[in-house]
Structures are given as structure tokens and as C-alpha cells.
Design a protein around this nucleic acid. Sequence first.
DNA 1: CGCACCGCCTGGACGC
DNA 2: TGCGTCCAGGCGGTGC
Length: 275
Amino acid sequence: MPELPEVETIVRQIRPGVLGQRIVGFSLRAGGESLVKPYSEEDLKRLLFDKTIISLSRIGKFIRFQLSDNSAIISHLRMTGRLYLAERIDDHKHNRLGLFLEDAVLNFLDTRRFATFHYLPSKSLYKGLLNLGPDALSDEFNSDYLVKALANRTKSIYASLMDQSIVAGLGNIYANETLYAARIHPLQPSRGIDETKAKKIVSHAKRILNEALEFRGTTLIDRTYLDAEGEGGNYFNRLNVYGKSKTLDGNNPVEKTKIGGRTVYFSPKKQMLGD
DNA sequence: CGCACCGCCTGGACGC
DNA sequence: TGCGTCCAGGCGGTGC
């Protein structure tokens, strides 16, 4: 499932192939209607035609294609979305749409149809981006910020790290790995996180995200996540707790629990509640 | 406002 | 073999 390192990997891979390219066509495939709501295929053919992609960026886990007339496409891969360039539109069963550029076609596969590919008219605001906190790899995400952001919050530190309005880019895998590295129990209340703990969280989160980026992200056994070149990410071999029964670094038992309906992995021996 | 909960989807794993 | 059931999960919306 694409989190910050996976989304950044894909953005870097497709950027050279989309920058400066003029949009010459758009085609929706079966099951793609929900991805582009509230626009229809006809709307998008008309709105996108002849616009040039002038920049491509990652904002948290969102991807923004900035177009020449100040409009944009905001996309989110959710769990199973995949973007890649090809010579033609892919007839894969789960390919939901094709964006035709001068030199290639951008294909968007999404098995579960949770992903989004939203057109954003010029000067309008995108709801999903409005409440986004600082990017996990930015300087704005530091211990001073985090202590303030967590003050007076009763929810767990795990829930706070998953909350994109507090910090943007972490998902379940990297939130679990960060808390293990920082030796903090996922159910620790957010407001109990002091400067020392906040420093550990910030530094480990950035270290882990940067390492994962070097490995082109994490591909689990299910092979759901593949980058824009069809390759898996190799950070899987570095995971300490996510999906594991023993930690990689020391063979400590890993337990799993549910927090807010999500499966959370931690090492009770290394992450003590109240510590 | 903060927080917990639900619905959205589908394929794969599992038990019988 | 084939059926039913459960699980994975980010985000937007709802209700307290």
C-alpha cells in the first residue's frame, strides 16, 4: 500500500515522462467512473484536452499534476492504485483510465477502486489537501511542532501518526515501524509525548522513510504495491514489526492488536505502556 | 472542536 | 471443488 516512500518513488519515475507533455486524449475504462467523480469521461475529455502538464508533485500521499491553465489533477492511490507510462492504453482488467500524452499514455490501475483521480478547476480548493499537516520529511515536521500538535490530545500516539492533519505521509507500515524504533507503545496517549519522545519519533520517522525511499518502498507478500516500472520495493526485508511475529533486529516477540479498526504491530518487550 | 465509527471495494486466504 | 466468511486499508462523512 503506497505511503510516502512508495508515492514519491512513483512520482520520480513518471515525472520525466509527463513534464512538458500536452494532453491529447482521455479515456475511461470499466469501473473508472467512481475514480473521477463528479466529472464524467466527456467532461474530462473536454477539460483536459490540449493542456500541458507543467509540474508533478507529491503532497503527503496525494499526487498533483499541475496543468498549464492553472487547473490540476489530484490523485490518491489509496491501497491498490498504480500509475505507469506505456506506449498504449493497457487492456488489463483493472486499468481504470488512460491519460493520453504526446509521447506516452499514463495508465491508472486500481483493483479495489478506492483510488481517486480528481480534476480540480483553476482557483478552487481541494478538500483533501486543506487539512494536511506538514510533510513527514519536511523541516516543519520537528519535535517542537510535534509536541505542540499532540498537546491536549487524548487519542493514542499511533492514531495521531496516522492522522494526516498532524503529519502527512505516514500510513500503517511506517507508523508501526517508527513507534518500534522510538520504543513507544502505540497506545501511549498523545498528550504524554514529551520533547525527548517527540525527538525520537521525528528522527526515526525521517530515517525510516528515507531508507524506505532508497529501497523504492515496501512490497508485501501479496505483491499489491508495484512501482511505475512494475518493480516491487525492497524495504520489506528491513521491516521490524509490521506483519512480523519476531523483530528483525533481536528476535523480540511481536504482538498485534486493533486500534481504530486497524491492525497494529508492536514489541511489548521494547515498547512499554507508560514508559 | 476532537474523536470514534462506518462505508467504500475486491481478491486472496481460510475452513468446511 | 465450491461455497461462505473474513481480512486488508486511507479517507470522507456522520454523529456524539
